[in-house]
């Protein structure tokens, strides 16, 4: 692995430090240090138009040590995890995984200004941590009330049809039996992650 070699030397370059932090958090096989800036990812990404930087640009910014701009970027939040970039990257960079890491880091440092996406993730997880299963109605209702009040009227017919066709229930899912165990697992995982 390329990372190991470079850690032999004392690295002062802030870009390299930031890069290695991202790599360490993603897992060493993400190969972000091997990016040749070819732009295959940016050319492939279905969300690129809505991103403030293309994925490739973001990787260049990481190398340049532009920590704040990177964590403030909406790019990772626009990523739909389609993995198109990952399968096409000529250097086998695990781009989608890097996007997840950047989201983790942005959430942890409260750097990303728009809360829509992080809120959705949080709400989703709250359901999972309560029931062990996700709860689409509760989630959507919660999320829409908070972020898309104006969108509700156009959404209403859809919601009603979903209910009518039995594809959406108003009652939350049954809690899984092993909820306690799951809670302990998640608590332990969080503790481990905080420690590392």
């Amino acid at each position: 692995m390329v990372l190991a070699e470079s850690t032999n030397h004392a690295i002062a370059d802030p870009g390299r430090v930031f890069l290695e932090e991202v790599i360490a958090r993603t897992g060493p096989s993400c190969r972000l240090d091997m990016c040749i800036q070819c732009g295959t990812c940016g050319g492939s990404c279905p969300s690129a138009d809505d991103m403030d930087h293309t994925p490739r640009t973001l990787f260049a910014m990481i190398r340049a040590g532009m920590r704040e701009q990177v964590l403030r970027s909406n790019t990772p939040w626009m990523c739909v995890s389609c993995y198109l970039c990952t399968v096409r990257c000529p250097q086998d960079v695990r781009i989608t995984d890097v996007m997840y890491t950047l989201k983790n880091m942005a959430v942890a440092s409260h750097a990303y200004p728009d809360s829509t996406a992080p809120d959705f993730s949080r709400a989703f997880i709250r359901n999972v941590e309560t029931f062990g299963r996700s709860f689409e109605v509760g989630l959507t209702a919660q999320h829409y009330l908070r972020h898309y009040l104006t969108r509700l009227p156009s959404m209403a017919p859809m919601g009603i049809s979903m209910l009518r066709s039995g594809r959406m229930g108003l009652t939350p899912p049954r809690r899984i039996r092993g909820m306690r165990g799951l809670k302990r697992i998640l608590a332990r995982a969080k503790a481990l992650e905080a420690a590392s």
Binding site: S81, Y100, R122, R133
Partner: peptide, 25 residues
């Protein structure tokens, strides 16, 4: 028996180890 939600694409975006632990259960 008694499987839990895999976290879809949401949990991984918030934190790595808990997300994987959730799935690994």
């Amino acid at each position: 028996d008694d499987w839990n939600c895999c976290g879809a694409t949401e949990y991984l975006g918030l934190s790595r180890l808990p997300a994987y632990a959730l799935i690994a259960r």
